[in-house]
Amino acid sequence: MRAFLGMGLLGSNFTKALINKGEQVQVWNRTTSRATALEAFGAKAFTNVADAVKGADYVHIVVKDDAAVNEVLAAAAPGFKPGTVIIDHTTTTVEGAVARTKEWKDKGFTYLHAPVFMGPGNALDSSGYMLVSGDQAVVNKLEPVLAPMTGKLLNFGEETGKAAAMKLVGNSFLICLTAGLTDMLSVGKALGVNGDDILTLLADWNPGMGVTSRLKRILSAPYDDPSWELNMARKDAGIFIDSTAKAGTNLNVIPVVAQVMDEWIAKGFGNKDWTVISKDVV
């Protein structure tokens, strides 16, 4: 039997998916109504979190952050039976994941951090990606429990906290991607290009296909063999900034990148590949 703590969009859909697979699931949420709403799908809801975990072999949790995980697990602990396994799907700090792994092991329980790249729809249809790392004996033992919940279980090896780090790295890309798309729409608006026009462009010219090759280029540091000189990239950034300023639209990312470009040009790298702006972090 499983308990699931946190009935937000992910938690509620994970619960529905588990029930659809024939699992018995007990649920809890700080706002009780979100938990009781899952009773219509076959879950058993509790107002007290310690009661919700009683009898559970596996306690899943997905809440806001480290503080919330710590608070909820501390409140739930009186209900844990010997051998209870805690599986935490919350996006947290690396330090928090490492500390909880040790803390709960010292208390006689198994804790595994298993964050996800999954939206609510993925949680419901068991697609997307789930990340794990740490003690490989624990990971291997729990793989049959976790694999049916996701499209792919990604194991990042022995390092405790590595899954948390990989989740945060991935989310940093998603944040930059969305901010970049927002700037692209702003430039388009300034130039009389609407969103449908941009979708038409991307349907044929799909820069997403080049993300891996671009990262490989950055990591190989080919600054003396430019495919796009920094001076030329900065020239284009200037056009974006000027065009949106005239049109009264806003840019979130490009002005910051332009400032970084200016710093590297001032250092004498203007005729190098524009990926030189990543030189200090490679």
Rank of each mutant, 00 (worst) to 15 (best):
A258G: 08
F4C: 04
K16Y: 05
L219A: 13
Q259C: 01
G22I: 06
M209W: 07
G208V: 10
F41H: 14
A114V: 09
L5S: 09
L181Y: 14
L10K: 04
I19D: 13
F156H: 07
P120H: 09
T212Q: 13
L112H: 00
M7C: 14
W274D: 05
K167E: 11
S33V: 05
V85T: 15
A147S: 14
E39Y: 07
Q24T: 15
W28Y: 12
D66P: 11
G192S: 10
N194K: 10
P78Y: 06
N29G: 08
S127K: 09
V59E: 00
L112Y: 00
G188D: 07
I218Y: 02
G42W: 08
I241W: 00
D197L: 05
V85K: 15
A35M: 04
V187M: 08
V94R: 11
S33L: 04
S33M: 03
S278A: 14
V85S: 09
M209Y: 11
L168G: 04
L10S: 11
T200Y: 02
I265F: 05
V193Q: 09
L112T: 03
L153G: 06
V98Q: 13
E159D: 04
S220E: 14
D262E: 14
D196T: 14
G188T: 06
G119K: 11
V193C: 04
L73S: 02
P207G: 04
T110E: 07
K272E: 12
G22Q: 06
F41Y: 12
S227C: 03
A3E: 03
K189F: 00
I61E: 01
T90A: 07
G42L: 09
F80W: 12
W228M: 11
M166T: 05
Y111T: 09
P82G: 03
R234E: 11
D225R: 08
A137N: 09
Q24E: 14
G151W: 06
G195N: 11
D183W: 04
I254R: 02
A68P: 01
V138M: 03
D204N: 12
A221N: 12
G108E: 04
D197S: 13
F109Y: 15
G121M: 08
P207C: 05
L181R: 00
V27M: 09
D51Y: 01
F46N: 06
V282R: 10
T101W: 01
T84Q: 04
V139R: 03
K235C: 04
T93A: 00
L38K: 11
I265P: 08
S33A: 11
D183V: 03
E103T: 14
A258N: 15
L10V: 15
S220P: 02
D273Y: 03
T275A: 08
A68Y: 02
I198N: 02
F117Y: 08
F173S: 02
I254M: 13
G268E: 10
C176W: 12
